[in-house]
């Protein structure tokens, strides 16, 4: 067992990893809450954002702010395109949630393959990450990007909470989530709210793609790897609770990193997947979730 002195660093690493998972989980979880399907393609939007930023800042050479704003717009456009080209026609023919899930997984592998075809299989590094600075606090070190990731996760948590609880849009989303038919009767147009949901999910994907791209390297299968952790975080935090995704992300990040105390680091994934299975089987509503619509 490693010495106690690395514990603060492990906790900080856990918070960083957890915040990354939370970023990935936020849009995924929002889509599930409002539209009731597992939007795995959120991972595709995140990877598209990361590669868009790579193209704009590394290859085209745009300045930081402009390329970041364009990247977020591209992530939103990609997400809306998925909705328009795939999800909307499927919803029109009343496809089940499982079919939407399969099509979402298909979009995910589609994007990974498209990125591999366009950018090649090698990993890429964003030039913007050169500005990264490291701070040493004695007990632990943290970089400015890592700080930005943690702060963004906290801000997203607050924003999501305000959105869901304090705005008209959030009210309409909650109404749709509770009962679509009744929501329609009182004049809520589901397709319109779904479009707003995907716009918000796209913005989250853009921000996540930028931060994750800066913190890690870019590689074609990042879409799959990232959203799997987002999925686990959402389920563990409570897939019926949007802020739950953030809590779940932090929980998984901490457990994975503290687990290295007992297990080789290669087993990080195995730890989180085992937690996922335990939650799905024993407490499918997750940490924060309320009872689900078709609870078994």
């Amino acid at each position: 067992m490693p010495s106690l002195s690395i514990l603060p660093q492990l906790i900080v690493n856990g918070l960083i990893a957890g915040s990354i998972y939370a970023l990935a989980a936020s849009g995924f979880s929002l889509a599930y809450y409002v539209i009731r399907f597992l939007h795995f393609a959120q991972g595709a939007a995140i990877a598209i954002a990361a590669y868009a930023l790579f193209t704009l800042s590394n290859q085209v050479g745009l300045n930081g702010i402009l390329s970041i704003l364009l990247t977020i717009s591209i992530a939103v456009a990609a997400t809306l395109l998925m909705n328009y080209a795939v999800y909307t026609p499927l919803r029109k023919r009343k496809a089940t949630g499982v079919i939407l899930l399969i099509s979402s997984l298909a979009i995910l592998t589609f994007t990974a393959s498209l990125i591999r075809a366009l950018f090649g299989p090698s990993t890429k590094t964003l030039l913007l990450s050169k500005h990264n600075k490291s701070f040493d606090f004695g007990l632990f070190t943290i970089t400015s990007i890592q700080l930005a990731i943690i702060i963004s996760a906290v801000l997203l948590f607050l924003l999501l909470w305000i959105l869901m609880r304090k705005t008209r849009l959030g009210k309409a989303m909650r109404a749709l989530s509770d009962n679509k038919e009744v929501a329609q009767v009182v004049g809520i147009n589901p397709e319109k709210i779904y479009t707003y949901t995907f716009i918000i999910a796209g913005i989250f994907a853009g921000i996540s793609g930028i931060l994750i791209g800066l913190e890690q390297n870019l590689y074609p299968r990042m879409s799959v790897i990232i959203i799997v952790k987002g999925f686990i975080s959402s389920v563990v935090g409570g897939i019926n609770s949007v802020p739950g995704a953030i809590i779940g992300g932090l929980f998984i990040g901490l457990v994975e990193n503290l687990g290295i105390w007992f297990l080789p680091s290669g087993y990080k994934d195995a730890i989180s997947f085992s937690i996922l299975l335990l939650f799905l089987l024993l407490r499918p509503r997750g940490i924060l979730g309320r009872g689900m619509r078709d609870d078994t």
Partner: peptide, 20 residues
């Protein structure tokens, strides 16, 4: 015994465990 979507989620989780 899990309902459709949850069964799909658990079995999808198995894939990631097998990979790990």
């Amino acid at each position: 015994r899990l309902k459709g979507e949850y069964f799909a989620m658990v079995t999808l989780g198995l894939v990631f465990i097998a990979t790990a």
